[in-house]
Design a protein around this nucleic acid. Structure first.
Length: 562
RNA sequence: GGUCCCGUGGUGCAGCGGCCUAGCAUACGUCCCUGUCAAGGACGAGAUCGCCGGUUCGAAUCCGGUCGGGACCGCCA
């Protein structure tokens, strides 16, 4: 071994012992005849000292060393003189008096700071990944990710799950994201697909009787990247047989809350985790990932303006649209600039415009006031609950567009007006997502991939219930949805229950799912339907997506609000 | 496929028609210094302002193009 201790290890009790350290020069403090060096490795930092009159060779070596050189230092551990201890370092009570210093490698001046936490452009950090990894933050993220992953694996293994690796080179699945593709040398002209998730593969395990499976699985999706999205991501993938949805939610929630207890800096707001349906989330917050850390809930003004003479609202309602709005307390004095800004925000989600109503005394200031009757304005006030001095912002559009637009404005206002209570994590389940969605023009899609929000093999909730129109079926759950302070709502997991029987039975909502009246039949994924004839049991799944580790930082599997 | 933003010494930022011979901090180099820990002090080197073209008496600054980066929409079962 080139070292007998790490740079994070020496303590006062080691005083008098001879040790050897190896590490990088973190910092050097040169006082002339007295020179200090902070030597760094993965475990910490230890101060090394040399004096010209006591050990000229060692002193010269420390003096010549530069940032990020790799040194091996042998010397004696000594308690630091009274008053010179450094409480910021774990090893701060001692120092190593350099005896022999060996330069293991010299280094050019690094392209960016290793010893300071300043922001550095990401492309540069990636170019010099090996240097970036030496920095405290990068290193801590690596450690955290390791610990969380390890914890989750143990959690499931202790509960009887088998961790099983599934194949990476598979056939393409027509559903979902675009596949990454690998050319096959053996079958010229053909390609392998990389899994978007272990979906089909784990189902085979279930049908094969491996009734509790877990995997920390790598997934590949060839979609356009975003800030929190990348081609390659890791998910905790779970599937169980002979269980009910509640069983899966319980075990996933158990894991999730345990991870928070162990690693998060802030507590969960509530447990058990609250549950909210997709419909409720859209109605109250205008998004399927609501930020519940502040109020400012949406109100629906469609009925207020039914029969209005204001053309835009009237036409929109006549076309089946809705008027969705927010009451912003005390903002009647908002400037034109403010309102233009919020209008721009609403437009990012498809709104054509944003109408404001400022309630100031008996007066209602609004660009469309002249189109409205006193009665309408009165109803607007009572239905919205706006008080004197409040501002109402409204969007008219198809229900989803209007909701999402005004929901986005709500999100913006939450940040802008500092309404967010960031003292806890608001994690929650959002469930009963619609299995099909209308196009924005209100018609059901005729496209091959339909407006299918869920996996085609998902079993709807209310299985067995007689459903008049399969397109109204609600699917599985999403959640827990985590609210982290600087991230707006991150889908943390998704899951559902699969259809497992063929369904000639009209009461089985499984069958019509594939044949919504004016939708084309999606191609079934290879292999899944055939195995249903081989007595597959029920299957319930959950996939807990890690935040697709940002390209830049090997982020933790769970965003822990660092 | 689309919209918007940003490219200035090694790094992070400022300057946004002439006051710029491009400023600040830090890093880097040399020298001084016996207890520092973001050590301190002195001196010094380092950038034709991503690139190409245009407007102008004059461009880091305005315009167009291009390359690179970022954010977002579409997309992401």
């Amino acid at each position: 071994m080139l070292r007998t201790k790490t740079c994070g290890e020496a303590r006062a009790s080691d005083a008098g012992h001879e040790i050897t350290l190896a590490g990088w020069v973190h910092r050097r403090r040169d006082h002339g005849e007295l020179t200090f060096i902070d030597l760094r490795d993965r475990y910490g930092i230890t101060q090394v000292v040399a004096h010209a009159k006591e050990n000229a060779a060692a002193h010269a070596a420390l003096k010549d060393a530069r940032s990020e050189w790799v040194l091996q230092v042998s010397g004696t551990v000594r308690a630091r003189p009274e008053g010179t201890r450094n409480s910021k370092l774990a090893t701060g009570d001692v120092e190593v008096v350099a005896g022999r210093v060996t330069v293991l490698n010299e280094s050019k001046t690094p392209p960016f700071y290793v010893n300071e936490e300043t922001e550095v452009e990401e492309t540069l950090r990636w170019k010099y990944r090996y240097i970036d990894l030496r920095r405290e933050r990068s290193k801590e993220l690596m450690r955290l990710r390791h610990e969380v992953t390890n914890f989750m694996r143990s959690y499931f293994v202790e509960r009887g799950f088998w961790e099983i690796e599934t194949t990476m080179l598979i056939r393409s699945d027509p559903t979902g994201a675009r596949d990454f593709v690998v050319p096959s040398r053996y079958y010229p002209g053909k390609v392998w697909a990389l899994p978007q998730s272990p979906q089909q593969l784990k189902q085979i395990l279930m049908v094969g009787g491996i009734d509790k499976y877990v995997q920390i699985a790598r997934c590949f999706r060839d979609e356009d990247p975003r800030a929190d999205r990348i081609y390659e991501l890791t998910q905790l993938d779970v599937e169980m047989t002979f269980v009910e949805p509640e069983d899966v939610m319980e075990i996933v929630e158990g894991c999730y809350t345990a991870v928070f207890d162990k690693f998060a800096k802030k507590p969960l707001h509530r447990r058990p985790l609250p549950r909210m349906t997709y419909d409720e989330a859209m109605k109250r917050f205008g998004t399927d990932r609501p930020d519940t850390r502040f109020g400012l809930e949406l109100v629906d003004l469609t009925d207020v303006f039914r029969g209005t003479s204001f053309g835009v609202f009237r036409d929109s309602i006549a076309e089946g649209g809705s008027i969705r709005a927010l009451v912003v307390p005390g903002k009647a004095d908002a400037t034109r600039k403010d309102i233009d800004g919020w209008t721009a925000v609403a437009k990012t989600r498809g709104a054509k415009g944003l109408v404001s109503f400022a309630f100031a005394g008996s007066e209602v200031r609004s660009p469309i006031a002249k189109f409205l009757s006193a009665e309408e304005l009165g109803r607007l006030r009572s239905v919205s609950g706006a008080k004197d001095g409040d501002l109402v912002l409204a969007v008219a559009a198809e229900y989803r567009v209007a909701s999402r637009s005004i929901g986005e404005v709500r999100r913006q206002l939450g940040a802008e007006l500092r309404l967010v209570d960031g003292s806890t994590h608001h994690a929650m389940w959002i469930h009963r997502f619609p299995m099909f969605e209308r196009e924005l023009d209100g018609r059901w899609s005729r496209r091959q991939r339909a407006r299918r929000r869920e996996h085609p093999h998902l079993q709807p909730c209310d299985a067995g219930a007689r459903v008049r129109d399969p397109r109204h079926l609600q699917g599985g759950g999403r959640g827990p949805l985590q609210r982290a302070p600087r991230r707006i709502g991150v889908r943390r997991a998704a899951g559902g229950r699969h259809r497992h029987r063929r369904g000639p039975d009209r009461d089985d909502p499984g069958r019509p799912i594939e044949r919504p009246r004016d939708d084309r039949v999606p191609q079934d994924a290879d292999g899944v339907r055939p195995v249903a004839r081989r007595a597959g049991p029920d299957r319930s799944k959950a996939a807990r997506g890690s935040r697709p580790a940002r390209r830049r930082e090997a982020g933790p599997a769970v965003d822990l609000a660092v």
